[in-house]
Write a protein that binds this DNA or RNA. Sequence first.
DNA 1: GTTTAGCTTTGACTTAAGTCAAAACACTGA
DNA 2: TCAGTGTTTTGACTTAAGTCAAAGCTAAAC
Lengths: 230, 230
Amino acid sequence: MQQHILENLSKSELLREMKPAFLEALAEIAVERTLVSDETLFMQHQEATGFYLICTGSVKVYRIGGDGREQVIHQFGPGEIVGEVPVFQGTAYPACATAVKKSRLIYFARNRFVELGRRQPEIFLNMLAILSRRLRQFVELIDDLSLKDVTARLAKYLARGCDSGSSCVVELELSKSALASRIGTIPATLSRTFKKLQDSGAIKVSASKIHILDCELLASIASGEKLGDL
Amino acid sequence: MQQHILENLSKSELLREMKPAFLEALAEIAVERTLVSDETLFMQHQEATGFYLICTGSVKVYRIGGDGREQVIHQFGPGEIVGEVPVFQGTAYPACATAVKKSRLIYFARNRFVELGRRQPEIFLNMLAILSRRLRQFVELIDDLSLKDVTARLAKYLARGCDSGSSCVVELELSKSALASRIGTIPATLSRTFKKLQDSGAIKVSASKIHILDCELLASIASGEKLGDL
DNA sequence: GTTTAGCTTTGACTTAAGTCAAAACACTGA
DNA sequence: TCAGTGTTTTGACTTAAGTCAAAGCTAAAC
């Protein structure tokens, strides 16, 4: 049973980064919960008693405006976490959450979570590490999105693969369309950009295998050097 | 003395959001440190013994590549925090950090920080709240940067001000150039965009006071409705 | 094999938004 | 008051990258 929960936890993009021992401790305090479509998780203004990890299904988070209309803020899917901010803050839920289809969730009660952290502060420390690392990555991506062009962003993505080695092969673990949205563009543009990088001589593309021919060149493109400037 | 540190802490964009009592506790374990230009904070691979908040000056973080050349990853300025990720993770510093000019920093020793969290886990919880809230905002901004145009982003920024009320006045607390970079654009474009929104009848601009004339319209522009579609 | 469906690539076209430079405006201190 | 500095606006121009639609590929399914 707890084993089953553990498996689900490690599908969450954030939690999977925790140290295994801590993740197990977290699984211990978790309980599973199934919702039918349109069942409500929590309401706006209600005291935040716990947060949820979505395993399957989908949950919409929305606010009820003064005029009674509901305004959807976001829809969350598998692997995403809902409601943790007010739980950590100790405030009320700032919005409502309702399942839009049959969903399986994992629930973490606030008091059990706090108790866990009191016994093992390292768990909180581990979570702080994950969040601040993620924050760093996002700050960087935001910078890149507004300052760099698609070519530089793709080059940067590819350059992560091979450190300093003069040549190597990167196997894309994402589909090209997924990669496109990862670096903030669309498949058509990505395709053209791959070709552009290939023409520059920095890489060679064969399906999902990218041969990095000139790592230095790739790095300089990644840092914003225009191809024409060479 | 500690009072002085406290003041500096509340200038950090992240720490200032902490509950005052916790911030004071944090100030208790902090020590001030002054660096001359080119003085090194820490080296790559060295055990992470603590992290720093920059009060004045500037610190560059860089990696030494296999070929000995230093590759600057980022330069941090006042209010920013350096080195917290490896400290939280309990790993070595992944890069080097050196002051690029005379700088005043505040140092948090890892062991004192952990000890503090052990005594008062609520402090960690409070920090978790701040980080996850910030993360949420960033996820949203990243979405907006790649999916929405400047007009929608500006409309959204302005719409935060007036909830559901049909009309109100928002006083910009940022300069227009700061606002521009906040929503991922440049002053020239921002200026034109303000005019565009004004022409649509949603707002009226007078210097740093923005009169919101039609909140509904503004909200629909914010959610991606093109002005031509009306 | 052939069909169907899902990616990926390509081409032709459009446009939002950036660049650069000049002008207008605002604010401070002499 | 005026000079002097910094910010905001404007205009003319350029371009990266998006849209849409068609054509190629793969690869599993019949």
